[in-house]
Design a protein around this nucleic acid. Sequence first.
DNA 1: CACCGGTTTGGACGATCGTCCAGTACGATC
DNA 2: GATCGTACTGGACGATCGTCCAAACCGGTG
Lengths: 173, 173
Amino acid sequence: MTVRERLLAAAAELIAEKGWGAVSTRLLADRAGVGSGVVHYHFASTQAVLVEAAAGALRAALAGLPDLLAPATTPGEALDAVLTALIDADGQELFIETYLAATRNDDLRHAVAEVLAEFRHTIARWLAEHDVPTPEATAAVLAAALDGVMLHRALDPDLTRALVVPVLGRVLR
Amino acid sequence: MTVRERLLAAAAELIAEKGWGAVSTRLLADRAGVGSGVVHYHFASTQAVLVEAAAGALRAALAGLPDLLAPATTPGEALDAVLTALIDADGQELFIETYLAATRNDDLRHAVAEVLAEFRHTIARWLAEHDVPTPEATAAVLAAALDGVMLHRALDPDLTRALVVPVLGRVLR
DNA sequence: CACCGGTTTGGACGATCGTCCAGTACGATC
DNA sequence: GATCGTACTGGACGATCGTCCAAACCGGTG
C-alpha cells in the first residue's frame, strides 16, 4: 500500500469518524503514519484528498452491486442483499458526509451525481427485469430511502434489516 | 427578536449553509450583527449555540406536523402534505447536518432521538387510524425514507414531489 | 565513491480558531 | 446627577489551521 493510498484510506476513515469539516492536514498525516508535509506532495490540497477518497469509496461500493443483485429473484431478496451490504460497510456515515459535502463542492457534486445515476440505473434494470412498475422512479426513491435508513440507523440501531425489508418491500410491488 | 434569538437563527442558517464544522464564533456573530464576544456571554460555547439552534429547529418543524396531517384522508394526501412542508422548509440540509452531528454529541443525540420518536409516533397514530398495517414499523421506515429524499433532493432537484409520492405511497397500502 | 531524481520530513508562515476579559454603553434606581 | 447591573464590544491569548519549503533520506546509475 503506497503512501498515497494510505492517505486516501485515512481520509475515508476520518471523514466518517470526525465529520468532513473536522479532518485536518495533520490528523490525516498522523492516521496514515507519515509526516504532515507529504499530504501536499501527493495532493493539491487537503480538500482534494477528501474529495478523491470519498468519490473512490462511493465507486467501490457501487462496483459490488451488480454481483450482489444478480442472484436475487424476489424483491425481498434483492432488498435484503443491498441492505446487508450497506449495513456491513463501515462507511455508513461516510456516504452521508459525502452527500452533504457534495452540495458545497462542484467536483465532488459531479462525481456523486455520476455514481448515484449509475446506482439508480443498476437498480432500475433489475426492477424492469422483474416486472416492477415505473422502474426508474422506483429506483430513484428506493436509493433515497436506503440512504435515509442508513442515516437513521446511525442514531437508532433498532432500525434493523428485519424491520425495514418488509415495509420497504411494499414499494416493489 | 433578542440578540440571543438572533444568534440561534444565525446558527440555523449557517449550519445549513456551510456545514456544522464550518460555523465559527465570529461567523455566527457577524451573521447575527453583533460583536464576537457576545456569543460566550449568552452561551457556554460555540457548540452549545449550534446544539440549541439545531434542536430548536427540529422541534419547531415537528410542532406543525399534527395540524398538517389532520385534514389528510388518504395516504397520498398525507404524504403530499408532509413532503410539501419538508421541501418548503429552508432547513433541508440543516436536518441532515444535525443528524450527523448528533452521532458525535451526546446532548444533541438525546434531543434528536426525542424529536424523532415523537415524529414517528405522530405518523404511526395517523397510519393506525387509517388502517395501514404495522403502523409503528411503517412510520419508522417512512421517516427515514423522507429524510433520504431530502438528502438526495439536495443533489438532484429532479426528485420532485410528483415523482416521490406515487412510489412512496405504495408503502402505505 | 559521487551524484541524482523522487520521496519524505519537520518546521516556518500568516490566518483563523475558541475562549476569555477589561472596558464601554445605557436604562433603572437611589 | 451619581451609582449600579445588565448587555455588549473589540482585542488579547495560545492553539490549530492550510500551505509552503529547505533540508534529509535513499535506491539506482555513472
